[in-house]
């Protein structure tokens, strides 16, 4: 009712928004560290998902709580929705290329069930060809037998 309580509400929303922004920024910072520390492209992409999806969503929520005018809030909602729709597309394209090319360190894979199951349309270039020996690691159970029937 009184202008005082209204101001209190505004400050509370600002505080919640700031907490959300800080959480998103901290996740982004750790993800950037992960981008440097993780060993190959596919692993780094997991770190990259955080600022792209979780971090940005948190920051957008925080920004919406700060701005609070309907135009801005709806536009920020759209930004979040676009990000949710488009991030998996990029991740899928890049991830598939990384697995076909040299973007994955196969010695660090515990099991790779995608090797050797390619259909005839695209025969060669994505196998870890003869320059790389077949035996990858002593504790890999099935060397490259493709995926098993166990669900």
């Amino acid at each position: 009712m009184s202008p005082g309580s209204r101001e209190g509400l505004a400050v509370t929303l600002d505080a919640i928004g700031t907490v959300a922004i800080v959480a998103g920024v901290l996740l982004t910072l750790v993800a950037s560290i992960g981008l440097l520390s993780l060993p190959d492209v596919l692993s780094r992409m997991h770190a990259a998902t955080k600022p792209q999806v979780v971090g940005l969503l948190l920051v957008v929520i925080g920004g919406a709580l700060h701005l609070r005018t309907s135009v801005d809030v709806w536009m920020l909602v759209l930004v979040g929705a676009f990000q949710l729709v488009t991030a998996p597309v990029t991740a899928h394209v890049v991830g598939r290329l990384a697995h076909r090319g040299d973007g994955v360190r196969r010695d660090l894979l515990y099991v790779d069930e995608l090797v050797d199951t390619r259909d005839g349309a695209d025969p060669g270039p994505d196998r870890p060809e003869p320059d790389e020996p077949d035996v990858e690691d002593p504790d890999v159970p099935a060397p490259r037998g493709g995926w098993t029937e166990g669900s």
């Binding site: 922004i21 971090g55 920051v59 920004g63 700060h66």
Partner: peptide
Amino acid sequence: AEFLCGLVAYAA
């Protein structure tokens, strides 16, 4: 993505 985060934080 970080640039976007920065823009939103700056707007806030």
